[in-house]
C-alpha cells in the first residue's frame, strides 16, 4: 500500500482540524474496512487520523432513549444489557454481521461508513463510478448477483453492506455529527444516500465531519422483533437479502410496525408503505404477504440478482412471522 502518515488524535477538535486541513486525510477507527481498501489501492489516504481513543465509546441512557458512542465496538453494543432489553433488534442485526473477530474491532461509526463490497469497486483494474467517477459501472452488465433491486441509477447498482444500519434505520435512529462548523444531527434515514449521479458519495457527511454518536428513541419494539439475514454461508458473508422486522402488538392486532431491508439498495432500505399496510391488521400470513407485496413496489432485477425479487418478499414474510411468533 501507499505510505501514509499516522496521527493519533486525543480530541475531536484536533481530529477534525487535521482532516479538514489535508485533502486526502481520513479518520481511522476500527480499520476493518479502510485498511482493506488501502491494501487493495482503492483508497489511498496520505494521512490517517486515529480517532479510536476518543471518548465516544459509552452506551448511555438519554431520556427514554439511548446514546451510543460512535467508537463503541459492534460486539460491545450487541452484548449491552440495555440494548438487548430495549432495542433487541439492534443486537440481533449486529450479531448477524461480519465475524466475531471483526465485531470486536469494528466501531458503530465505522460500520455506518463501510463501503460497498461490489467486486468492481474493489478491483482497480475495472470500471467503477463509485471509485472513479465517470469510468462506468462494471456491475450493471457484469456479475451483479449481490447487487441492488431498489433505488439504482445508471451509474451504480451497488448495495450498502451493513446489517447494523438496517436495524438503526428501522428504529428511527439519529446520527450526531461534529464538524468544522459545529454540531448537527442527521436522521438515520437521511444519512446514507442513493447513488444518483454521484455514486462516489455514500452518505451526507461533509469533509471533516465526525460521527460522535447514534441515538435511538424509546421504542415499543422490545419483544416481537426479528432480524433475518439470508446469506450464502452461516457466518462472515454479506446478505443476499436481510430484513429487520419489529411489531408492536395489542393481542393479535398490529399497533405499529417497523420494516427495513438490507442487501437490496445503496442505503438501508426502510419500508414505510409496507409498515403502514400492517397497522391495524391482525397478525396473519396474509397480512404479511400483503406488506411484502407493497414493499416490492418499484423493485427491478438485473441479470444475476433477479432472484431477489422473490427472495426479498419471502424473507419479509418470514421475518414478520418469526417476529410475530407465528414461526419459531
Amino acid at each position: 500500500m501507499k505510505a501514509f502518515q499516522y496521527v493519533r488524535s486525543t480530541t475531536a477538535k484536533s481530529a477534525i482540524e487535521a482532516v479538514v486541513k489535508d485533502p486526502s486525510a481520513m479518520f481511522l477507527a476500527g480499520g476493518t474496512n479502510l485498511v482493506d481498501l488501502m491494501k487493495r489501492g482503492v483508497t489511498e489516504p496520505d494521512k490517517l487520523i486515529d480517532i479510536s481513543r476518543l471518548p465516544y465509546n459509552k452506551i448511555e441512557k438519554e431520556g427514554s432513549g439511548v446514546r451510543i458512542g460512535a467508537m463503541a465496538l459492534n460486539s460491545q453494543v450487541a452484548d449491552d444489557k440495555l440494548i438487548q432489553e430495549k432495542w433487541p433488534l439492534l443486537s440481533l442485526a449486529l450479531n448477524a454481521g461480519a465475524s466475531a473477530q471483526l465485531r470486536n474491532k469494528a466501531t458503530v461509526g465505522g460500520n455506518m461508513l463501510q463501503r460497498t463490497r461490489c467486486g468492481y469497486f474493489y478491483d482497480t483494474a475495472m470500471d467503477c463510478n463509485k471509485r472513479e467517477p465517470g469510468s462506468g459501472c462494471g456491475a450493471k452488465e457484469g456479475y451483479n448477483r449481490m447487487h441492488a433491486i431498489f433505488g439504482t441509477s445508471e451509474h451504480c447498482i451497488a448495495v450498502h453492506p451493513s446489517d447494523m444500519c438496517i436495524a438503526l434505520v428501522a428504529l428511527d435512529a439519529t446520527v450526531r455529527v461534529q464538524g468544522p462548523k459545529g454540531e448537527r444531527t442527521i436522521p438515520f434515514a437521511d444519512f446514507h444516500r442513493l447513488p444518483g449521479d454521484h455514486p462516489e458519495k455514500d452518505n451526507t457527511l461533509e469533509k471533516g465531519e465526525l460521527i460522535t454518536a447514534v441515538t435511538i428513541p424509546d421504542s415499543p419494539y422490545t419483544k416481537n422483533v426479528h432480524y433475518l439475514k439470508v446469506r450464502d454461508r452461516s457466518s462472515y458473508a454479506f446478505a443476499l437479502v436481510s430484513v429487520a422486522a419489529a411489531l408492536e402488538l395489542d393481542g393479535k392486532t398490529i399497533k405499529s410496525a417497523r420494516l427495513a431491508m438490507g442487501g437490496v439498495a445503496h442505503k438501508p432500505w426502510r419500508l414505510l408503505e409496507a409498515e403502514k399496510s400492517l397497522v391495524g391488521q391482525s397478525v396473519s400470513e396474509a397480512a404479511f404477504q400483503k406488506a411484502a407485496e407493497v414493499a416490492m413496489t418499484g423493485a427491478k432485477g438485473y441479470e444475476y440478482n433477479a432472484f431477489k425479487l422473490k427472495l426479498a418478499p419471502n424473507s419479509i414474510v418470514e421475518a414478520l412471522k418469526i417476529a410475530a411468533g407465528l414461526t419459531a
Binding site: S99, R117, G119, Y120, Y122, D123, A125, M126, G138, G142, Y143, D232, R233, S234, S235, Y236, A237, F238
Partner: peptide
C-alpha cells in the same frame, strides 16, 4: 474482462464452523 470478481476470502465462500 476475463477477470475474477470474487477472488478473496470474503466473497469466495469457504465453509465456516457454523456450516
Amino acid at each position: 474482462f476475463g477477470r475474477y470478481v470474487n477472488n478473496n476470502f470474503a466473497d469466495y465462500h469457504v465453509p465456516v464452523n457454523a456450516d
